[in-house]
């Protein structure tokens, strides 16, 4: 066997799902930054490429109705569901909200229902514990508390800060699926984990060293909790 085919055999692929929303450039650049030479990052809207990938990342930016709408319009929902059943899968930002049963954004949108529960609005009169006004969107660097041990938290300190930009937060019915929380007027879920699926509300690609570490962990994850 030639060296070339050897290297092709070993090549691992991560598919970044492109369903027409959001800034995939920064996600792909961050993955490429931490990927080793045997890993290729592919931004794709092709179901066949997603089906063949070793791991899948579902980004999300923008409003949930457009997100879910585009996932259906592009015919990618079956591939997304299939990937969530069989290989390491990471969803970020609106991606985590799209995996819930329902979101109250845009007057209510039914989502993919992989995690039972809803995405709720902080509200324009969101208050801190002491009654002072909090800005919405929740924008900036906040601390993430690990509520379980998980391979994706490897080498990331508990309470490390990650970059957030969002006005909706997820409330899963099954609390044992919560992998991390954050405090902004209330303690809310910012990471969900079940089997080979992990989802986060923050933006690892914008969270400097700890964010890059999370992507690195994802690229080395075998999909086991």
């Amino acid at each position: 066997m030639s060296n070339k085919s050897m290297s092709e055999m070993k090549k691992s692929t991560v598919a970044v799902i492109d369903y027409g929303m959001g800034n995939l450039h920064s996600v792909a650049k961050a993955l490429e930054h931490v990927a080793d030479e045997n890993t290729s990052v592919i931004v794709t809207s092709d179901p066949a490429v997603i089906d063949a990938a070793d791991r899948v990342l579902l980004p999300g930016v923008g409003a949930i109705r457009d997100c879910i709408g585009e996932m259906h319009n592009t015919g990618l929902v079956p591939s997304i569901r299939k990937a969530m059943l069989e290989k390491p899968f990471l969803a970020i930002c609106v991606g985590i909200q799209s995996l819930m049963s329902h979101s109250e954004e845009n007057a209510g949108v039914d989502c993919l229902n992989h995690f039972q529960g809803n995405a709720l609005f902080f509200g324009e009169n969101h208050k801190d514990h002491d009654g002072s006004k909090l800005k919405v969107p929740h924008m900036g660097w906040n601390q993430v508390k690990h509520t379980i041990n998980h391979p994706l938290w490897t080498n990331i300190p508990d309470n490390a800060r990650f970059y957030f930009v969002h006005s909706f937060y997820v409330v899963p019915e099954n609390k044992s699926e919560v992998a991390g929380t954050c405090d902004y007027g209330l303690e809310f879920c910012v990471a969900l984990a079940r089997d080979n699926v992990f989802a986060v509300q923050f933006h690892p690609e914008k969270s400097h060293k700890d964010g890059l570490q999370l992507y690195k962990n994802f690229l080395h994850w075998d999909g086991k909790p």
Partner: peptide, 8 residues
């Protein structure tokens, strides 16, 4: 503990 102010 909470959201940090930012320096830009």
């Amino acid at each position: 503990m909470g959201l940090a102010k930012r320096i830009i």
